[in-house]
Write a protein that binds this DNA or RNA. Structure first.
Lengths: 142, 142
DNA sequence: TATTGTTATACTCTATAACTATA
DNA sequence: TATAGTTATAGAGTATAACAATA
């Protein structure tokens, strides 16, 4: 096999992985009345209490986009906002009790969704796959 | 390592792969003034001339969603629509010359984007990774 | 009647630009 | 002046429901 077609096959496999995993995440989000972005938001907020600005850059969103996102999540009772005690301009975001419970449920759903696919691999293969992915993503992050 | 934490690590690696690859695809799409959905659309249309209904189910979209998507792509001169010769209800979609050229460029960009990450792996590792991903996605598709 | 596609409507996500308040 | 956040505006993507044309 030439290096070129190897490359193409890996690219296709990665792209397909992205679409399949994203589809699964989208379905899980939908089943819980969430968008994919809100699912990410809940995941990021577990155990954290970031400022709006930090959260925006972590999610790769504009601050105005995040304002809207948080506004809708807050209206649904999933997150709360509080003025920072040390910086009068800053606002901290946190999960409510309901939001944390939902985040926990969603995380469980995600793990369940991967189970059937993973069961086709041996334990050694799963570990090897994990290591290879980590090695691929590690240095340059594409 | 317990099976549970193995599982969690694989799930995390897959989710991270999805986000990283999706981010890269989004950036490439943006650089070419496309949305991620339009990038997918161009990829799917290369060398094909599907009906609206088939295209919608292939992309996992509602027919009304696809109508809007195609309408915008058509307005930009990337795709065309034509009534089916054999079924007066059906509409076929195809890439214009401009659309095909853009699709080719985008495909090249995607391959370039994966290069740096892939270069951290040996040829044998790349092939093994590809095989494992294909095995994971193959049977159940999550 | 069933299928194919479009249109109307509504909501989320997204960005840019203008604004307010604080540092 | 610079930073943190919100609001106004606009456009894309998405779905549901109602509709028209064809099978």
């Amino acid at each position: 096999m030439t290096d070129d077609s190897e490359q193409a096959r890996l690219v296709d496999a990665l792209a397909q992985t992205a679409f399949v995993v994203t589809s699964a995440l989208n379905r899980i989000a939908s089943d819980n009345d969430l968008s994919l972005t809100q699912l990410r938001l809940l995941g990021v907020l577990r155990g954290r209490r970031p400022q709006m600005s930090h959260l925006a850059s972590h999610l790769g969103l504009e601050k105005s986009t995040l304002s809207g996102l948080i506004e809708r999540a807050e209206r649904r009772g999933l997150v709360g906002r509080a003025r920072s005690a040390t910086d009068g301009r800053a606002v901290e975001v946190f999960l409510t009790e309901d939001g944390d419970a939902l985040a926990a449920r969603v995380q469980g759903d995600v793990r369940l969704a991967v189970l059937p696919g993973a069961s086709g691999l041996s334990s050694a293969e799963r570990n090897h796959l994990t290591v290879l992915i980590e090695k691929l993503l590690g240095p340059t992050l594409l």
